[in-house]
Amino acid sequence: MQIKDLFTKKKYATVPSERPSKRDIPEGLMNKCSKCGNIQYSKELEKNLKVCSSCGHHNMLSAWERIAMTLDDGHLTEYDAGMESVDPLNFPGYAGKLEQQKSKTNLRDGVITGEGMIGGFPVVICVMSFDFFTGSMGSVVGERITRAIEAAHAKQLPLLIFSTSSGARMQESILSLMQMAKTSAALSRFQGAGGLYISIFTDPTMGGVSASFASLGDYILAEPGARVGFAGRVVIEQTIRQKLPDNFQTAEFNLQHGQLDKVVHRKDMKATLTKLLDMHCVREGASHGG
């Protein structure tokens, strides 16, 4: 035997094993918190409204999950359910990406709108879903939200919008940008006529959505830790090489800088909304004092 043979690895034949290599844990039984790493049962997490029991991190919700926990009996009368995006600019890859997003999420686009009740108060509600195309605003998101604002106006109902979005949908470029003006103009009419609009920022809400209807609420709430801002952290760091604070653009940061009214824990959201709605409702027989 030569010295060099000491360093060669011996080769063994391998026989495929009948046993599964890992212990059989069903997919999705456990969940690891993306913030603190705490591992807990997914069922526990669901029960806790997808808020980490260890660090309080509010995980993202899909639009339907949010609707289920916000509306009375989770019941929504949906508006414009059949409205779908087209590829108006023939943008490379957009049509395929849309199909992929639809089959991934079972949603038609990044926002669900409709009517329901909160604490017994009828409302028009829009709930965005980050899982569809990162909640980006194209023609459909802009149109659905505008129609919801118009419905709230016509029916004289309060309007609630839960926002989450990465901003403009660049595959619709200028059409996407103009949705900012369209939704804001609709709010100008609705709010000008005395309509009540409560905006709720959820994680994350950036760019064109943050810089249009989401920032125009008569009341603006946010979930703890939600990142809210115009330009993204990475863009800012790369453009101007500023050192940014750790809590940059979080709900707490925005509260501190006067950009919103209240940071509300998910478990308290429905009660807070109910209270706000109640403040704007003069019930029959209620005394006006004096």
């Binding site: 900012m180 209807f213 989401a214 920032s215 801002g229 115009f230 101007i240 940014l244």
Partner: peptide, 17 residues
């Protein structure tokens, strides 16, 4: 719009909206 810390602190989104 200017992408910076101070702009965000003072409500860049709100100002545009």
């Amino acid at each position: 719009a200017y992408p910076g810390n101070t702009a965000e602190e003072r409500g860049q989104s709100e100002a545009i909206a």
